[in-house]
Design a protein around this nucleic acid. Structure first.
Lengths: 153, 153
DNA sequence: TCTAAATGTAACGGCATCAGTTGCGAACGT
DNA sequence: ACGTTCGCAACTGATGCCGTTACATTTAGA
């Protein structure tokens, strides 16, 4: 299983943090150290996020990545769609069912509907959370304010 | 991506059909021909379904597989859980976040909640459909009754 | 009792995907 | 000009899944 969504959330949290602190772009090297991976892995991830319009990168000295728009306007669904192309919960026959079998194509058609509804439910639950909400929750967790109600997630 | 759920649905539909027709056990070879795969693949699948208590198999001459209980009492969630162990919609850092990074563990904790809710939504949508409902829908599709309302799925 | 029909299971290869790594060219600030 | 940083291509190792072969085991039926 694929860990790009988790890494993307981590990266975007760092970018939201930098933005709030008024710091400049964040380098892939710094983020890679935080995630414990290689800078190139982070850059590949950033390339996908940039293609989706979520981040912008600057090259050269004092370059790095930053959020392309407000953290309030980025939902986890945006992130998921950007880095996880296959959102279907299950796959299909690689070679298709036997066309001489009368039920094969109908099973596939039925499952298309099931898959579509499951996918819609997943997307709805991801659309409800913005990057800003996630970041605020992280701040609360880090600051250890146990008194406030724990944010969902 | 994994096609076991689709194959399992196909297999179980055939078993439901055989049961309704009063036929005996269905061989893996017959089912494999319908799915266009190898009998061993079907048997591996049946082994998982049997471990989950959904089917029973008989060895030897005139052996094969049959439903272990009524198709009305098997939901697609049962099937999904039986063959798709990883139901989480996204994975985690392989090596975990950097412990010296203050937000890493919190990102993971936050995403645990997100994943749990997404997973719950998926499971709810799968629990709503029984094998019997799916099979009835397939029958309608095969018989080509366009007048009746199309079943969800 | 013998035979044919089936399952159960192990082993192996091919293929795809992913993470990690290296190397280098291009862009950019100082 | 120089060092910094991204972008990108290429390669490796690990993993997971499907397909296939092979073989032992079980069972019904002649």
């Amino acid at each position: 299983m694929n860990s790009r969504f988790t890494m993307a959330a981590h990266v975007l949290a760092m970018l939201a943090h930098a933005e709030r602190e008024g710091r400049g772009p964040v380098t892939s090297e710094l983020m890679a150290a935080s995630i414990r991976t290689n800078p190139v892995v982070v850059r590949r991830l950033l390339a996908e996020l940039a293609r989706a319009g979520l981040v912008v990168s600057k090259r050269g000295a004092s370059g790095g990545a930053a959020l392309a728009r407000s953290a309030k306007k980025i939902t986890l669904l945006d992130v998921y769609a950007a880095v996880e192309e296959r959102s279907a919960p299950f796959g299909r026959h690689p070679s298709g069912p036997n066309p001489r079998c009368p039920i094969g194509p109908h099973v596939a058609a039925f499952l298309d509907g099931v898959s579509g509804r499951a996918q819609a439910a997943l997307e709805t639950s991801l659309r409800e959370v913005t990057l800003a909400q996630m970041f605020e929750d992280l701040l609360r967790r880090v600051e250890g304010r146990r008194s406030g109600k724990a944010a969902r997630g």
